[in-house]
């Protein structure tokens, strides 16, 4: 029974397929006058037919989206009342979305807020920034030039400084050497005095060394005094000679 029914159902579709496969042109029926029936009754019937044709089993919102309509005509959640959502609806579905496009622009308070933000985020104008950048570049160049100058001036003096430093080092070394020799000589003298090798840590040795050092100091002192007297004497002589000359001249 069932099978029979199916066969009956299939028949027209097979016919259609065959018709579309044929190359014979279809009979043009455009000459006939098309009568559009728009009474309430027929419209309702059409609507019902449309409803029956929709076998997608999609939710109404999804069906709308699939057919390029906005999903909901009435707001369902709080988010559907926001400006952002309404702008989106207008952007996506155009004027058919029923949204007034004036909401696409910021409101007066929005503009104020944007301006306030921009005043903080971009505090300098372009000419200001250009000026500051130029100044910074100039300062940097100046700094480098100054440093170069400094280095050049120092480089000129470098040879002299080197010489001075070397002389200083040599002098210091010579002084150290002299002191060392003096000490050695003293020790040698002490040894000669005793006539045999004596440990420098020995008490007698130390005593003798102190004595010798004292003598040496005395000698040095004397020498210095003598030198001083010599200078004084020379000075006096010079003074005498000068005074004599002066008296001669005055005579």
């Amino acid at each position: 029974m069932n099978l029979c029914l199916r066969r009956n159902l299939l028949r027209p579709s097979i016919k259609n397929i065959l018709r579309s496969a044929t190359t014979t042109p279809e009979i043009d029926t455009s000459d006939q006058v098309v009568i559009v029936d728009d009474t309430e009754d027929t419209l309702a019937r059409e609507l019902e037919i449309e409803k029956k044709r929709n076998i997608s089993r999609l939710a109404p919102a999804h069906f709308n989206v699939m057919n390029n309509r906005r999903p909901y005509e009435e707001p369902k959640i709080i988010a559907h009342l926001t400006v952002k959502y309404n702008r989106k609806m207008y952007g996506k579905y155009g004027i058919t979305s029923g949204v007034n496009p004036s909401i696409c622009w910021p409101s007066k308070t929005d503009i104020q807020e944007i301006q306030e933000y921009e005043a903080v985020a971009f505090p300098y104008s372009i000419p200001d920034m250009m000026h500051a950048a130029a100044q910074k570049r100039k300062d940097e160049i100046l700094r480098i030039a100054q440093r170069d100058k400094e280095v050049a001036a120092k480089f000129e003096k470098l040879d002299q400084w080197k010489k001075e430093l070397n002389a200083k080092i040599a002098k210091k070394a010579a002084e150290v050497e002299a002191v060392k020799q003096k000490k050695e000589r003293l020790i040698e003298e002490v040894r000669r005095h005793f006539g045999f090798k004596l440990d420098p840590k020995d008490e007698r040795f130390q005593e003798m060394l102190a004595k010798k050092e004292k003598e040496q100091k005395k000698k040095e002192k004397l020498a210095r005094q003598e030198a001083k007297e010599k200078i004084m004497f020379a000075k006096l002589q010079q003074q005498n000679a000068d005074s004599e000359n002066a008296s001669k001249k005055s005579n």
Binding site: I126, M129, M130
Partner: peptide
């Protein structure tokens, strides 16, 4: 598609000026 007005381009930061 977001339905917003095209904004203005912002000025470059000081280190790119």
């Amino acid at each position: 598609q977001s339905g917003q007005a095209i904004p203005r381009r912002m000025i470059p930061p000081p280190d790119a000026i």
